[in-house]
Simulated assay, not measured.
Amino acid sequence: MEIKDLLNPDENSDGNKKEKESPLKSLELDLKFYNESIKEVAVEIMVEGISEYPIFVAHQHEVKLGEPILDRNELNTGWSIHASTVEEFVEKGLIQADKKDRFIKQYKDPYGFMCVFVIVPEGANFIFFPYQ
């Protein structure tokens, strides 16, 4: 899934598409801003042998998943980012152990894309956002 898939426009009563202002638009801006820092952490996670599958958790509230790397309050941005791994997601039950291989098959090149687990009030989903 790409970030644009999460930015669905609403349809108004005329049936015409009307762009709804989404907090996910600010996520796209923040991911572009955070680009170098996130890629650096991803490479570090892989080079140090921690995991071949880094996952970054994007949120606007407190979460207990991964390690905080970018704080929205300190950086005056809209989203905080935590660094995690597929192994932690399996350990915490967010990815079922029997579906780990399926997830890994869907996982895009970690040198070209950041894997982001986006948490919003309506739910959560994975996106793969290209590094700039």
Rank of each mutant, 00 (worst) to 15 (best):
V90H: 08
I45V: 06
I45T: 08
S51Q: 00
D71R: 12
S13Y: 12
M1T: 12
K108T: 05
F89I: 11
K100G: 03
E40Q: 13
E48H: 08
P110Q: 03
K108Q: 15
V57P: 10
V116P: 02
I95E: 09
G112K: 15
E48T: 12
N16L: 13
L29V: 12
Q106W: 09
D101Y: 05
H59M: 09
Y53M: 00
T85A: 09
I50Y: 01
N125C: 08
T85K: 06
N16R: 15
R72M: 14
V120D: 02
G93Q: 07
F126M: 08
Q96L: 11
P9F: 14
L94G: 01
P23T: 05
D71F: 10
A83G: 07
A83D: 02
Y131E: 07
P121D: 06
D10V: 15
I104M: 14
K20H: 13
L7P: 04
F113R: 05
P68I: 13
T85M: 02
K4M: 01
E62R: 13
I50K: 03
K4W: 00
F129S: 10
P110H: 01
Y111P: 00
H61C: 07
F126Q: 08
K18S: 13
K39S: 00
I81E: 07
K105V: 10
G15L: 04
Y53N: 08
S26T: 10
T85Q: 05
N76V: 15
Q96H: 03
V120L: 09
D14T: 11
E40C: 00
D101C: 03
W79V: 01
E74A: 13
E74K: 14
A97C: 05
V43K: 10
I104A: 03
I95V: 15
L75E: 09
E88F: 01
I104H: 06
K17A: 07
K92P: 07
S37Y: 02
Y111T: 10
P23S: 02
E21G: 09
E40G: 06
I50F: 00
P110T: 05
I127D: 05
Q106G: 11
E19G: 04
K25N: 08
F117M: 09
F113P: 01
P121L: 04
D101G: 03
E2I: 03
K64I: 09
A58C: 00
I95Q: 11
F113V: 11
C115G: 11
S80M: 03
P68R: 14
V116A: 12
E36D: 06
E91N: 09
E48N: 10
I38M: 01
I69W: 07
R102Y: 12
L6H: 02
W79L: 02
S22N: 12
C115W: 05
S80K: 09
V47K: 13
K92H: 10
S51E: 02
G78T: 06
Q96A: 11
N8R: 14
D10A: 14
F117W: 15
V116N: 07
L6Y: 01
G93K: 03
P23N: 11
V118M: 04
E48M: 09
Y111A: 12
I50Q: 00
T85E: 06
D10R: 13
D101K: 14
N35W: 04
H82N: 15
F103C: 13
M1P: 04
